[in-house]
Design a binder for these strands. Sequence first.
DNA 1: TATGGGACCTGCGAGC
DNA 2: TGCTCGCAGGTCCCAT
Length: 308
Amino acid sequence: MPELPEVEVVRRGVARWVVGRTVRSARFLHPRVTRRHVAGPEDAIARTEGLVVADAVRRGKYLWLPLATADGDAADAMVVHLGMSGQLLVEAAKAPAEKHLRAVWEFDDGREDLRFVDQRTFGGVAVVPLVGVGDGGLGGLGEFPDAPWSRFLPAPVAHIARDPLDPAFDDALFARRLREKTTGLKRALLDQTLVSGVGNIYADEALWRAKLHYARPTRSATRAQADALLAGLREVMTAALAAGGTSFDSLYVNVNGASGYFDRSLAVYGQVGRACPRCGSLVRRDAFMNRSSFSCPGCQPVPRTAHW
DNA sequence: TATGGGACCTGCGAGC
DNA sequence: TGCTCGCAGGTCCCAT
């Protein structure tokens, strides 16, 4: 499932293969792809064709391509969210269509297409203006951090917090806002307005590294525990990034169609019944938030006042 | 306003 | 062999 490391791998691939090229045509092959582009697919196409892809930028799980005119004037940004099963692929123009091909962008140079493939159609594309926001620092992680567009965010991303790998992430602010919440730690991690880029896999792995139970009340989290949680997130995400991301099946691949191999390094996620690599207790799986939560009963004991 | 639960969606595997 | 059902989970929407 694409979380921050997987989206960053894709972003790097898009930056390498697509930035600097002019969009000749865009096609949307499924109505759900543009459901978040309120003006409809025709408008999204009109706002894309003839423009140059100026950069590939990411914040959390959101990826966007700032567009520019041939003269270099900034235009809209094409925002892509991979959802659960979305893939951005760079394919030879004559390559056969993938089974779940949802969108295709062709370029003036006639070289490789950019394709959006999405089995479960939770992902999508929108072409939107870049706006200023007041989060104390704008933009996201892209190839050109000093470019004019890096000072702005696409509107659908404006409410998303910075992610743990962002150099401008404020650890003290995270710890303070965590304590202000009245929920459990894992719910807070999955709430993209506190810290972004965290999904079910890396939430479980970070909580295991910090030796914290997922249902521990956020109000009880000390500064040291908040720091341990951030350290766990950074450790597991950095390692996953180095491994090319986590792939359990063909649902996550990079732009060249290759899977990552970090799933071999997971400590608890998907490891139910196996020994915890730290204490040897058997990893357990709980139903939580309409999904699964994996934890070690030895390292991550249930707190006296759990927030389920 | 903050929080939590359900819906959306499709393919796979288990069980019958 | 074929059918049904549960599961996977990111985000949005709605109820409380």
